[in-house]
Design a protein around this nucleic acid. Structure first.
Length: 719
DNA sequence: ACCGATTGAATTTTT
DNA sequence: TTCAATCGGT
């Protein structure tokens, strides 16, 4: 049995499980990936299951690619026909094939990323004549995604939000998305659910095809993903899920830890296997992770153990500020690298928020250490990359007004805001795309001769590119766009940007080699779901920097976790609410359990946020770690110098008060504005004062507004 | 009407 | 620090 030799008893039991639902609760480092790959190998080679009948869902594209490679090495037969990818990519594939069963949808849709979503929401707010300050686009995006992830119908939303306007925004947003022939990320999932519900024949096709379904990182599935899994597996019940409730860290994206906690109830006669033996970390590392996670109430009982040696103590350093923290990292990296003969890619640095990378980056550059940063403003979000992609998107989907608006004047062509606004009006009036509106306006000579000529040129440019798109592959088409628009000339002074554009051309070239169809559409789909993570090459000798979220699923011999401060980890947006606080703890748990040999923790006593230096105290999570496993030092101990600490202020938890009583809080302004007092703002309405900075008309007042949350406003705007 | 410059505001995590 | 909206000049 080639698939049992290298496995322990539980892993082997999972791999050779007969048909029927199986839940694997796999602790960190317990050989989860190995178990899934061997399971697939077992099905293919031992059970003679056709790869065509297997669907495997992973959390990232990178994980999918890696798993494919591993399985290929493992099995005798090939894996042609096997579906492996993220929920989003799997759904995309299903929708590309079957979306036209749903009325009003076309298969050449464009995928709208979150930036596009925000821009579209802004357009909606303008159309509805709503104030962006009151209905913050980002917040609205969050609400809309929330509705979609829960599968809420418009009529339900009335109950969920007391603000009728939010419902209007959602409704218009959906309408606009349809008009653009676009799908947002949530649509990929929710329309698949809709498709399965409304077209049982389509569902049956996939049910019959996918005899075996495997889902990795099941703890981070959301309601829609759950529904997809459930309906696909309903017929054959061969559903194999792997997850760790202690590593559920995506609730803000709609992930519901209940999916894994109640799996047994969802599928009758579920077999449960726990993988509790850790092969990754030293005893010390594993012990502190166990001690930490014990503090969570919402979890399944599971204690990891290991045969590995105790290893070194866990280091903790309390730095003066973020610079001092970065220097501490480099000191240790340098010395350990020499002492233990490490390579840079043996080492990773984690943090809670992307902006923490800057200080570390600066010091790394100074000391000449090679590094890569994963995430942040990723390659695909770069302005120049998005510009080129907008051209491609418009070529592929001429209804994509959003992309058109992005590039109609890029590089500058003398077509301004007023003209675009008028074009939008024409488009609306005739119920056509802006590209069509341009044609109408040019024919009718609606604009001045100069403008008409510019528009005519633009229209000809796009139509000629559309014609060419039938013959050219993605890379060639990008080159054509660059040539026709002289885009490179417009950014020639910015070397970085030019490089990014040429990287994009190369990327497209690589894609064309892989893609048999060589279609622009496929390239765009791939780009839309691609992330920075996918480009990450763990074999290049570079230090890796990333957030704790992106660290999930990876492992490194040496791990540094920075910024263990109240307000950062746990993040202040999560403090105060029990569930969110537990998720922050899980986040740290994920970070700690990435470490194989050695773990370093650090915090800074003060940190510059933007411009202003703020004081902070060490994270409460540090107090939960057993002291005898920690080796703690501080800036003061290392340098024998003291530094002046900023006064540390604790925020009052007024947020938890019942917002309905805001109306009743007395507004007494006889001697200026005070904390806790009720106020009325000209635009935002009623609220309660949380904080006062300065005095008089120009004082900055932080107010918790009813239904809108915290905002900082000028005293002169309050009544 | 468009463009560039200056000011102003805002920052969790990502498929 | 970056990004976006606004304003005044051409």
């Amino acid at each position: 049995m080639p698939f049992s030799g290298k496995l322990n008893k539980e892993q082997n039991e999972a791999v050779t499980h007969p048909d029927g639902p199986l839940l694997i609760l796999a602790g960190a480092g317990s050989g989860k990936t190995r178990t899934i790959t061997h399971r697939i190998g077992y099905l293919l080679d031992e059970k003679n299951v056709s790869p065509y009948s297997i669907l495997a869902v992973t959390f990232t594209n990178k994980a999918a690619n890696e798993m494919k490679t591993r399985i290929n090495k493992l099995v005798k037969s090939g894996i042609k026909g096997l579906w492996m990818g993220t929920f989003h990519s799997v759904c995309l594939r299903i929708l590309k094939r079957d979306i036209e069963h749903l009325e009003g949808f076309k298969s050449n849709f464009t995928i709208f990323d979150d930036q596009d979503q925000i821009r579209l929401i802004k357009d909606c707010l303008k159309l509805l004549d709503l104030n962006e300050r009151v209905y913050e686009p980002r917040a609205m995006r969050g609400k809309i995604d929330g509705f979609k992830n829960r599968g809420s119908q418009l009529k339900d939303i009335k109950i969920e939000t007391h603000d009728e306007k939010i419902r209007d925004i959602y409704e218009l947003y959906e309408e606009e998305l349809r008009r653009h022939n676009g799908l947002d990320f949530s649509d990929l999932l929710s329309l698949t659910v809709k498709l399965f519900k409304e077209h049982p024949k389509v569902l049956e096709f996939y049910q019959d095809r996918f005899q075996h379904i495997l889902v990795d990182e099941y703890q981070d599935t959301n309601n829609l993903q759950y529904q997809i899994v459930k309906s696909l597996a309903e017929k054959n019940k061969n559903i194999f899920v792997v997850g760790d409730d202690n590593q559920s860290i995506y609730s803000w994206r709609g992930a519901d830890i209940q999916n894994i906690l109640s799996f047994e109830g969802d599928f009758s006669s579920t077999k449960v296997i726990k993988l509790e033996k850790n092969y990754r970390s030293t005893k010390n590392i594993l012990n502190i992770s166990n001690e930490l996670i014990k503090n969570n109430l919402e979890r399944k009982e599971k204690t990891l153990y290991t045969d590995n040696e105790h290893g070194e103590l866990i280091n903790y350093y309390e730095a003066m500020d973020e610079q001092d923290e970065a220097k501490y990292l480099i000191r240790n990296i340098d010395s350990q690298k020499v002492e233990k003969g490490l390579k840079y890619n043996d080492i990773a640095i984690f943090y809670r928020t992307n902006n923490q990378s800057k200080a570390i980056e600066d010091e790394l550059i100074l000391s000449g250490i090679p590094y890569t940063i994963i995430g942040g403003v990723g390659f695909y979000q770069r302005m120049e990359v998005k510009d080129i992609i907008a051209y491609l998107r418009l070529i592929q989907n001429p209804d994509d007004d959003l992309s058109l608006k992005r590039i109609i004047n890029v590089p500058l062509k003398g077509i301004g805001k007023v003209t675009i606004n008028n074009l939008e009006l024409i488009a609306r009036e005739h119920k056509v795309s802006i590209l069509n509106a341009i044609e109408i306006a040019v024919n009718k000579k609606t604009f001045s001769p100069g403008t008409t000529q510019k528009l005519k040129n633009f229209h000809e440019l796009i139509t000629s590119l559309i014609k060419l798109s039938g013959e050219l592959n993605a890379a060639e088409l990008i080159k054509q766009v660059l040539e026709d628009t002289s885009y490179l000339d417009s950014i020639e002074e910015e070397e970085e940007r030019v490089n990014n554009v040429s990287d994009l051309v190369n990327l497209a070239g690589e894609f064309d080699l892989e893609d048999e169809e060589k279609k622009l559409e496929n390239f765009l789909d791939w780009i839309a779901l691609a992330s920075d993570m996918d480009k990450y090459d763990e074999n290049s000798d570079k230090l890796t920097l990333m957030t704790l979220h992106t660290a999930k699923g990876l492992e490194f011999p040496y791990v540094f976790i920075t910024g263990l401060e109240e307000g950062l980890l746990p993040h202040f947006r999560s403090i105060g609410e029990f569930k969110q606080l537990e998720e922050e703890r899980r986040l740290l748990y994920v970070g700690i359990t990435r470490a194989m040999q050695r773990l370093y923790l650090s915090s800074a006593s003060q940190r510059r946020y933007f411009g202003k230096t703020q004081g902070s105290i060490p994270s409460r999570f540090l107090a939960e770690l057993p002291e005898d496993l920690l080796n703690s030092t501080s800036y003061e101990a290392t340098y024998g110098r003291r530094y002046s600490r900023e006064e540390i202020k604790y925020t009052t938890k007024i947020d938890d008060i019942d917002l309905n009583i805001i109306d009743e809080i007395p507004g007494d302004s006889s001697d200026g504005i005070k904390k806790g007092q009720g106020v009325t703002h000209k635009t935002f309405g009623k609220g309660v004062v949380l904080k006062v900075e300065g005095s008089g008309e120009k004082a900055k007042i932080t107010v918790l507004f009813k239904g809108l949350g915290r905002k900082t406003v000028l005293a002169s705007f309050l009544e």
